[in-house]
Design a binder for these strands. Structure first.
Lengths: 233, 233
DNA sequence: GCTGTTTCGTTGTATTTCCAACCGATCCGT
DNA sequence: ACGGATCGGTTGGAAATACAACGAAACAGC
């Protein structure tokens, strides 16, 4: 992304942008028109500098161009909590930017010296004379990203709302099985990562998995699982 | 909604539509053009009839016009779980419709005799000659709804990812306090509802609340809370 | 083959949570 | 004032979970 090009900022290449989730599906030929139309602004941040502050009312979506941003939450007593990392190409503030009046519940801080692109939400939505086709693509991408995040959150929540470790595991594994369309499937986590995802203790989870295996509910080997239907029992 | 009007279906009134989250902000004068442009289809369902089936790949967003739909999830072993109710004006399938190739993980069933409006996702996004301004409003509403849901899910998840009941409570109460902009605030739940929201046992939660009150962390009376900063201790 | 690391299962104990049940306070309509 | 219902706090025992620690197996680099 540190290359020659336009977009109002010489450090942002179209080759980089067209691969981001926001601009995916546009060609390098289309980008100049689109970028010209949505008129992004650019800002550089030093390490540990605040990009967005809790309590602000933002109307622009941010995208990390280079460096890295951290989304952090500060509670009533001042305890800080890192929610997520935003790497080059990642968006931030996209949920708040489309909800005028909704105050930021998180802060965004540059974890390294970073370049950030800010795009006003209205520029993404309102129709201009020339670039409607590209706008459509932009909006599609935004909706798709939002929908994807929504599904991921809904799924995680549906597992976490279960009370016991066993139920959480079965909810997760059942979902993976249905997604794979088979009773045999691989999961993308090792035990520690799965425990973190389900917010339970690793050893307790491991224990529960083995109990279920001994009861004949399922079998597994590393990250490969096999759910047994009652007929197989 | 059982009234005289157009929209390709005589049972759907513009007065009803303009109040829904999807069409909010449009006037009754604009609606005929917009509706004509997005070309929704209508289907009636008998009680207990399936509207959408788990495993389908949908490209249309649904809206309940009359009756009631239930979003249900069926796991690997066939256990059914009611995820949500969709009342007149509510959307369903909106996350999946914008993600081609993403197969439905839930089913939607009519809990009562229901009339449903189906709008193809492409019709909402693609630009037509006449109604661009209305399209923009539609897309704004969609993005806003998606963003709102996103924030609600993220918040709930941030509380539920805490391991103990005490941490869950503090996370929730801290968030409510920050949202209210005051250390004194009201919550929209009674004890049972709060316990359900945080997925914990009511009596254990009540216990924990009283312990924290005795420790001087906070005070409360019914649904009114007061968080104490360390200075006040 | 050796060694350090990672991963996963296992165990025991302390802690926490769940569950069922009960009680007092409050609110409601009559 | 009287039942009935709802709500919130309390309690005790059963069950589940967290936590710390250990050991075996698999793996990577040398």
């Amino acid at each position: 992304m540190i290359a020659m090009s336009a977009a109002g900022n010489s450090q942002v290449s179209y080759a980089f942008l067209k691969k981001t989730s926001l601009f995916r599906g546009t060609t390098e030929a289309e980008l100049p028109t689109l970028i010209g139309c949505i008129a992004p602004s650019y800002r550089e941040f030093a390490k540990n500098e605040m990009i967005l502050r809790q309590g602000e009312d933002i109307t622009a979506v941010g995208m990390v161009i280079s460096g890295r941003a951290q989304i952090i939450e500060e509670d009533f007593w001042g305890n800080r909590n890192i929610i997520a990392d935003a790497w080059p190409g990642d968006l931030f503030g996209e949920s708040y930017a489309f909800l005028p009046g909704e105050l930021l519940r998180v802060s965004v801080v540059a974890a390294e010296p970073s370049l950030v692109m800010m795009i006003d939400a209205r520029h993404m939505l309102e129709i201009c004379s020339s670039a409607c086709r590209f706008h459509t693509r932009l909006v599609q991408n935004l909706l798709a990203e939002s929908a994807k995040k929504n599904l991921a959150l809904t799924r995680k929540l549906s597992h976490m709302s279960k009370r016991t470790t066993r139920e959480k595991l079965l909810s997760y594994l059942s979902g993976q099985s249905l997604a794979a369309g088979s009773d045999v499937f691989e999961i993308p986590f090792n035990r520690q990562q799965l425990a973190d995802y389900l917010c339970v203790d690793r050893s307790a989870m491991s224990n529960e998995l083995c109990k279920m295996r001994d009861e004949g509910l399922l079998s597994f080997e590393r990250s490969s699982f096999h759910l047994k239907s009652e007929i197989e029992l």
